[in-house]
Every structure is written in C-alpha cells, then in structure tokens.
Computed example of a mutant assay.
Amino acid sequence: MPTIDTKMYNNSFQNTNKTAEERSTLGKDDFLKILITQLQNQDPTQPLQDREFIAQMAQFSSLEQLTNLNKTMNTVAESQTLGGLSGMIGKQVTWTEKAREVDDQGTVTYKDVPKQGIVKSVSMKDGTTQLIMEDGSKAAVGLIETMTNPTAPADANSGSTS
C-alpha cells in the first residue's frame, strides 16, 4: 500500500468552524479527502490493488450509512421528546432560577428565585428544550420542580384525598 505524506493535506483539516471534538475525529468528508489524495498521489508503478480499493470504499459506505442512521435516530428522539412534553401544556409548573446580583463593592452573588407559570407551549431549538409560559417567560425543562393541574380542585393538587 502506498504511503501518504500527510504534510500535503494537513491544512485541509484545519477548519476553525469545527468544535474541538469535531476536529479530533475523522468524518466521512475527511475520509473521502484522504482516499482522493491517496489515489492522486499513488505510485504509478504500484497502483492501489482492487481489493484494497474495494475495502476502502466499503468502509466509506459504512461510515456514510452510520452517519445517516445517527441523524435519523436524533430526529426520532427529538420528536418523542416533544410529544411527551406536549402533555405539560396547560399545567402549572414551578422552578427555581439563579438571579445574578452585584453589590456596591462589585461582588457578584447568585440568589435562588422561585418562579411559576402555566405552560403555553414547548419549544426545541438548537438541542435545548424549553417550556414557554402564558406570560412569555421561559423555563428549561431540566429546572422544572413541580407540575400541577390548575383546573383540578385544590385538594387534588396537594395530593390529599377526601
């Protein structure tokens, strides 16, 4: 198998828009770039053997299919999350937020502020799921502490039975 001088195409992998994790792993585009570079720079007296080329193409095909499967699974998971959270619409929820306070000396402290609201809708954007309240405030789903039905009798919300 021909050797590849990585100095020739190292710069093609330096993309400032990628996260550190994305830069440290090879994706299907990177694999294809390596394969093309390998084909362009192979020794004409020792061309890539058919079985090696077929094996590399099979690896590329597998990588592409796994990438597509991962995207599909993420879409299904997001749909199920939204479907499950839609049951919270119309419910009263409580949560605690951290409020930033700065005193006269410039010292920053954080204070717990209890909040409550009736859920109007559920929003999922950029991987973050939030509940949007009737008053327009938003709460991250992970902050929700309690959920009650505001239309139920008072003793039903407290959990006691008569």
Rank of each mutant, 00 (worst) to 15 (best):
K7A: 14
K7I: 09
Y9Q: 15
N10K: 15
N11Y: 14
F13E: 13
F13I: 14
Q14H: 15
N15M: 09
N15T: 07
N15R: 10
T16F: 14
N17S: 11
K18M: 05
K18H: 07
T19V: 08
T19H: 05
T19W: 04
E21A: 15
S24C: 12
S24D: 12
T25D: 07
T25I: 12
F31P: 06
L32R: 15
K33V: 10
K33L: 15
I34N: 04
I34A: 11
I36M: 15
I36Y: 13
T37P: 10
T37F: 15
T37G: 14
L39H: 03
L39I: 10
L39G: 05
Q40A: 11
Q40Y: 10
Q40I: 06
N41W: 04
D43Q: 05
D43T: 04
D43L: 01
P44E: 02
P47W: 05
P47T: 02
L48T: 11
L48R: 06
Q49W: 08
R51H: 10
R51L: 06
F53Q: 01
I54W: 02
A55Q: 09
A55N: 07
Q56V: 00
M57D: 05
M57S: 01
Q59K: 01
F60P: 04
S61Q: 07
S61P: 06
S62L: 00
Q65S: 03
Q65W: 02
T67E: 09
N68Y: 08
T72N: 13
T75P: 03
T75R: 13
T75Y: 10
V76G: 04
A77Y: 04
E78S: 12
E78C: 03
S79P: 01
S79D: 13
S79R: 13
S79I: 10
Q80S: 01
T81Y: 00
T81I: 06
G83R: 00
G83W: 06
G84P: 05
G84M: 14
S86H: 00
S86F: 00
S86R: 00
I89P: 02
G90Y: 11
K91Y: 04
Q92K: 12
V93I: 11
T94P: 02
W95V: 03
W95T: 03
W95A: 05
W95Y: 11
E97M: 04
K98G: 09
K98N: 10
R100V: 08
E101C: 00
E101A: 02
V102M: 11
V102C: 08
V102D: 06
G106D: 05
V108G: 08
V108N: 04
K111C: 03
D112C: 02
V113H: 05
P114L: 02
K115P: 03
Q116V: 03
Q116K: 08
G117K: 04
I118A: 05
V119D: 04
V119L: 03
S121Y: 11
V122D: 03
V122K: 03
S123K: 11
S123T: 05
M124H: 08
K125I: 10
K125L: 08
G127K: 05
G127C: 09
T128E: 11
T128P: 05
T129C: 14
